[in-house]
Design a protein around this nucleic acid. Structure first.
Lengths: 111, 111
DNA sequence: CTCGTATATTCCAATATACGAATATGCCGA
DNA sequence: TCGGCATATTCGTATATTGGAATATACGAG
């Protein structure tokens, strides 16, 4: 379709907001834990660390991007990856960081 | 290589910092303007808007990610895309946003 | 060297973000 | 309905970010 039209400010802000959701280490840690499969909030609190309230808040931010799904099951709430392409993005970044740190201890950046 | 090892906090913070660089509308606007080819700071100030100082600062932040190149040519400084995969990431986000707003006015999110 | 242009940096105010603690809400079982 | 567990929300604080204005630096022309 070769759609080369430029995005206006509003559109750019919407894109920016998605990147912003992935711009925090705690939220990336949550994504890492969700990669193998769905997880409840309590489980994530244990595995990621930090207060329950904070993990809950970060989950909301992630869910708002549409890449993460929220699902109530009785008493608890399960979150899961809705769209794997989030990991594609992470891997683009990881590859870049790996290329830059070549020569140094080969740090593994694949999420 | 199937490298499934989890990233530690430090690594996650480095990844987060890259996403953060792309989490601002002004910086995305700059990327948009750089897509067709290299550009000097002054030209970007005109096309993106805002103060010269601010554009210069945002360019630094972008350059630190390694996706943008900085090159001095005599009196002025040209910035250019060093790694196109930044646009791959943008398009992942854009596609997502397009899918979500289907039914509404088909907003074009391809940078 | 001096001047003018181009870019970078510093300083400041406004706003946004991350986080824990405390509290509120929702939902199940008894 | 009540108690208890799981999750969400509110509040306050420390810190970060954005952006403009002013200033500093770099560099070429003359």
């Amino acid at each position: 379709m070769g759609n080369e039209q430029k995005l206006d400010r509003i559109a750019l802000e919407r894109v920016a907001k998605v990147f912003q959701a992935f711009s925090d280490a705690t939220r990336l840690a949550i994504l890492q834990e969700l990669k193998p499969g769905p997880s409840g909030v309590g489980e994530l609190v244990e595995r990621v660390g930090g207060s329950q309230g904070n993990i809950s808040k970060q989950l909301q931010i992630l869910a708002e991007t549409g890449f993460i799904r929220r699902e109530k099951k009785g008493n608890q709430v399960f979150y899961s990856i809705e769209d794997d392409s989030i990991f594609d993005m992470c891997n683009v970044v990881c590859s870049k960081l790996n290329r830059e740190s070549r020569g140094k201890a080969s740090f593994v950046f694949e999420i």
